[in-house]
Amino acid sequence: MSYPQRVKIVEVGPRDGLQNEKELVPTDVKVELCDRLSAAGFPNVEATSFVSPKWVPQMADGAEVMARIARRPGTIYSVLTPNMKGFEGALAAKADEVVIFGAASEAFSQKNLNCSIAESMDRFAPVAEAAKAHGIRLRGALSTALGCPYQGEVPIEDVLYVARRFKEMGCIEIDIADTIGVATPQKVRKVMEAVAKEFPIEGIAGHFHDTYGQAVANVVAALDVGISIFHSSAAGLGGCPFAKGATGNVASEDVLYLMRGLDIETGVDLDAVVDTGQWISAHLQRKSSRAGNAIAAKRAA
């Protein structure tokens, strides 16, 4: 099997990882998390989101986080922007990339965005235009692409519709997200191969959650079809506030350990990420990732 020589790992812990925490995480901790992750060498850090605090209170301090992080030259700092108000916040915060997010599942779109898939795409159009006008990178997050908590199976044609719309809007990358972690490798291959016929494969990212313990296997399945961008979260933090039972993202430590074993370059310091995973897990009083815990235990022995 011929894998890419290098992959890009997008670290989503500060945003996707923390958004579901019930207790408010102090801004100081969020800033330090971003700084630790960028210092570890992640080329892209998803720092926060500019969404209504009513819907995601954890992200209410997004502007302050963006103002205080120590920006590492060459690192892309991304923020989620669901509408023009969010875009204006992202612009003021000097975000390097804005992320629009739409669901492939009609039921999830209604529950999460209170509108149909087609309506959600129309809402994002002005954000996409504004990003283009200001020369800001645009990324599209395509949630529930591999399964939905409300309708179950999601037709591939619905995934392709959103992928095509994101492409038309000018998205440089699109994230094919297994929001609730139900996918298995065969499904991942099938969906990724189909999407690659509609969107340049070098701009397709795999975003897997580990609810059923399949996330690392799904990363390998995506590698099999030529995907070279993956999203992960230090310590496997995460979940979805709108998807009951969804557990964390695939852990950055687990993905980095995998890539090292496959001789695939990432440019990210695994040991630094292990330290960060142990630190944030201690702060949140939870277990860290499997690879992170194993490496930390080996060091301590």
Rank of each mutant, 00 (worst) to 15 (best):
M1D: 12
S2G: 12
Y3E: 07
Y3K: 13
V10R: 14
G13I: 02
R15E: 08
G17P: 10
L18P: 06
Q19L: 10
N20S: 15
N20Y: 08
K22N: 11
K22E: 13
L24N: 11
P26W: 07
D28N: 13
V29Q: 06
G41P: 08
F42H: 05
V45M: 01
S49K: 06
S49C: 12
S49T: 13
S52C: 13
S52T: 15
M59W: 05
D61M: 07
G62W: 03
A63S: 15
R71F: 06
R71M: 09
P73F: 08
P73H: 08
I76R: 14
V79F: 05
M84H: 04
F87R: 03
E88V: 04
A90D: 01
A90S: 04
L91W: 13
A93L: 03
K94I: 00
D96Q: 02
F101A: 15
A103G: 05
A103M: 05
A104T: 10
S109N: 14
N114C: 11
S116V: 11
I117Q: 02
S120Q: 10
S120R: 09
D122V: 13
R123Y: 12
R123H: 13
F124P: 03
E129R: 15
E129L: 12
A130F: 04
A131H: 07
A141F: 11
T144S: 06
A145V: 11
L146V: 08
C148R: 02
Y150A: 05
P155L: 06
L160E: 03
Y161E: 14
C171K: 07
I176T: 04
G181T: 07
G181E: 06
V182F: 10
V182D: 04
Q186M: 14
V191T: 15
M192H: 12
E193C: 13
E193T: 14
A194S: 12
P200T: 11
P200Y: 08
G206V: 09
H209M: 07
Q214R: 13
Q214S: 14
A217S: 15
N218D: 09
A221H: 07
G236A: 03
L237S: 02
P241G: 06
F242A: 04
F242M: 11
N249H: 07
V255Q: 02
Y257G: 11
Y257M: 12
L258Q: 05
M259D: 03
G261C: 09
D263Q: 14
L270H: 01
V273I: 12
S281D: 02
A282P: 06
L284Y: 02
L284T: 09
G292Y: 00
K298G: 10
A301C: 10
